[in-house]
Design a binder for these strands. Structure first.
Lengths: 345, 345
DNA sequence: CTGAAAGCGCTAACAT
DNA sequence: ATGTTAGCGCTTTCAG
C-alpha cells in the first residue's frame, strides 16, 4: 500500500514495460491501430489497463488547442454565491449531462463584475463558454476580453460575436396580459425591473403594451419598477398596489418572485388573490406551483433551452461553421388559480 | 480585428519584447521580485499588461503537482441530470464561492455508477474532490480508484481515507419525534428509505426510536420504507397511512419531499394536516416553507456545511496534516404549522 | 509498422 | 540579477 502523493502512470511507463516507444503507445491509446501491429496493440492495451493508465488532460490540452473544457459562468458577488433561481439550476444540470455525454468537462465559475472573466476563460484554454444570467452590459464588457466560442442565455445583447438563446419574451408578455384581458380585466398594472437593466423585461413590457393596445385599452398603465428581481420587492409592489392603486384589478409581473411577493403583499393587507387582485407571473419556477394561490404564469421548456445551448456550442466547436446568432424558444401560459374571471357567466 | 483562433500571449512573447529570458519573466509574473531588478520588473509588468498576458493553467498544472482544480461530484444517471435538491444547489453555490476566493477552480461532474470516477479525477490532476449525495457503498467503491484528498458530504461510509462532513442525523430524528411526543402524540409512524441505502436514514431512525423509548412508547411502530426520496413516494405513504393505519396520529419523515407528499396524500383523501395527521420532515428545503400547511421540519446550517467541507479540503491541501475524519454539524427543529397539539390546554 | 526529434508553456535547479 | 538546462506528459512531424 503506497501512502502519500498519487503517482500517475504515464505513456513512458507503459512504453518501458512494453519495450516500445512512447509514440507507439500513444497511437494505441488514441486508437490509431492502423499504425501499429496487432500484437503490439494487444500488449500495450493490456499493460495500460493493468497499470490503470489515464491520459493527462492537462498535457493533452497543452499540446492540442482543445481542452475539452467548457466554462459555465454565472454572475456572483464576492459575498454571495451564485445560483439564484431554481431555474438556472435545472438548466445547469442539463448542460452538465449533455456535455458529459459528449466527452466534455464543465468548469463552473461565478464571476463578479470586479474581477474580469478573461483570467478563468483563457488560463484554462476553454474550448467554449456558456453565460447564464448576466446583464446585457456585462456581457458586452466581458466579451471584449476573449474570443472563445460563446453561447449566452437570456440576453438581448447584440449578438455579432456569439450565439444567443432566449425565450420569446415579448410573446410571453403578450400572452400573460392577453389572458388577463380575456378574463375581463381592463386596469392591468405592470411590475418589472427598470428596462435598462434587463432586456428581457423590456421585451415583456412590449408584449404587455401590445396586448393592451390590441384590446383598445389606452391611458397610462400603472407601472412599478424595481432594480432587482426579488420576493421582497414583490411584496413592496403588492402593498403599494393595494394602497395607492385601488382601481387596478390585475397585474402582470415579469418574474414569479415578484408575483408571489405581490400576492403576499396583498394578503398582508387583508386582501385576497385573486378576488381583490389577479396576478400573472413569468418563469414557472417551483414557487409558482406551490404558492397560494397557485400562480398562473408563463412557462418554457427548460430542457430544450439547455440542449439548444449545448448543441449550438458543440456544433460551433466541431465544425467551425457559423451558427445562427439568435435562437428563440417558444413560451406558454400555464393557468392556475391566481386570475379571477371578471366576466359574467 | 483578428478573426479566428485566439492567440495566447506566452512568457516567450514577453521575454522577446523585453529582451530578457523566459525565466526572468516567469519570476516577475510570480512575484519573486527579490530575484529580479526593479527596472526589469517594471518593464516586464508593463509589457505583460499591454499584451494582456494570462498564465496557462494547463502548463502550470503540468509542471507543478497542483492544478488548483477541485472536483465536485454528484450522482447522475445517463438519462437524468444531476441536482436533485434545492439543498445541494445551495451547497454547491457556497462551495464555488469559497473555492474561488481561495484561487481554486471548480470542475462540476455528474457520475453515473457505470462509468468510473477515476478518469475525471485523475486525468485533470485534481487537487481534491468533494462528493455530494452518494450512497455509502458508491463512495467506498469509487474511493478505491484514486487517492486525491477527498471530502464527503452526508455519508456514514467508513472514513479511514477521507473526511466526512455530516449532520447529527440521530439527534435530528430524536428532535423531530420528541417534538411530536411533546405535543401529545403516541402513535407516530416513520417514513424513510430502506436503511441499507442511506446511512443518514438509519441514523434518523435510531433517533426516532430513542425518543419513542424515552417516552416509554413500546410496540412495533408503523414504518413505511421507499427506495428513493421523492414526492410521489411521499404521496403513496400518505394515502397508505390514512387507509391502513387510522390509529396513527403523527409521522416523522426523513425528508421534506416525503413529508410534503404525505400531506398531499392525506389531503387527496379528504383529510387535513395537521388535524388528521401531524407531520414533521427533515432538511428544511424551500418547499417546507411554502407547503400547505407550512412544514415543521429539521434544519441545518447550509453555509456552515459547505464552508466546513471547503475548509477541510483546503487545509488538507495546504498542510499535509491529517484532518479529523468526521465533522458533525448540529441541527435544529423549525416549528411551523404541520403539527397539532393533542394535549388539553 | 516503429522510432527520433521537437515543442506545447511553464518552472525548478543550478549555473554565471 | 539574469541565463541555461532540463523536463512535466503528450502529440505532431518526419525518418527509417
Amino acid at each position: 500500500m503506497e501512502e502519500g502523493v498519487q503517482v500517475m502512470t504515464t505513456l513512458k511507463d507503459i512504453a518501458k514495460e512494453a519495450g516500445v516507444t512512447v509514440m507507439t503507445v500513444s497511437n494505441v491509446i488514441n486508437g490509431k491501430y492502423d499504425k501499429v501491429s496487432k500484437s503490439t496493440v494487444e500488449t500495450v492495451t493490456e499493460i495500460a489497463r493493468r497499470l490503470d493508465y489515464v491520459p493527462s488532460a492537462t498535457a493533452r490540452s497543452l499540446v492540442a488547442k482543445s481542452s475539452r473544457l467548457v466554462g459555465v459562468l454565472l454572475p456572483a458577488t464576492k459575498d454571495e454565491g451564485i445560483f439564484l433561481s431554481t431555474h438556472n439550476v435545472a438548466v445547469i444540470g442539463v448542460i452538465e449531462r449533455l456535455l458529459r455525454e459528449k466527452g466534455y468537462y464543465l468548469l463552473l465559475r461565478g464571476v463578479s463584475a470586479a474581477e474580469g472573466v478573461s483570467g478563468t476563460l483563457r488560463s484554462w484554454n476553454l474550448d467554449g463558454a456558456i453565460f447564464i444570467g448576466f446583464l446585457d452590459s456585462e456581457i458586452q464588457q466581458m466579451r471584449a476580453s476573449f474570443d472563445t466560442p460563446l453561447v449566452v442565455l437570456e440576453s438581448y445583447a447584440a449578438h455579432g460575436d456569439f450565439m444567443n438563446v432566449r425565450l420569446d419574451d415579448r410573446r410571453g408578455g403578450y400572452l400573460a396580459t392577453h389572458h388577463l384581458i380575456q378574463n375581463g380585466h381592463r386596469s392591468i398594472a405592470f411590475v418589472g425591473t427598470h428596462k435598462s437593466e434587463r432586456g428581457v423585461d423590456r421585451e415583456r413590457y412590449e408584449g404587455y403594451l401590445e396586448a393592451l393596445r390590441e384590446a383598445g385599452i389606452t391611458g397610462d398603465p400603472v407601472t412599478l419598477l424595481s432594480h432587482a428581481v426579488s420576493y421582497s420587492n414583490g411584496v413592496e409592489a403588492g402593498t403599494k398596489l393595494r394602497r395607492e392603486h385601488p382601481e387596478v384589478t390585475a397585474v402582470f409581473a415579469t418574474a414569479d418572485q415578484f408575483a408571489v411577493g405581490i400576492m403576499d403583499g396583498i394578503h398582508s393587507l387583508g386582501g385576497t388573490v385573486p378576488d381583490d387582485l389577479s396576478v400573472v407571473g413569468f418563469d414557472n419556477l417551483e414557487i409558482a406551483a406551490t404558492s397560494r394561490p397557485p400562480l398562473t404564469t408563463i412557462t418554457q421548456d427548460l430542457n430544450r433551452k439547455a440542449a439548444t445551448a449545448v448543441d449550438l456550442l458543440l456544433q460551433r466547436l466541431q465544425s467551425k461553421r457559423d451558427q445562427p446568432g439568435e435562437t428563440i424558444l417558444d413560451v406558454e401560459l400555464v393557468e392556475r388559480k391566481s386570475v379571477r374571471n371578471l366576466k359574467p357567466a
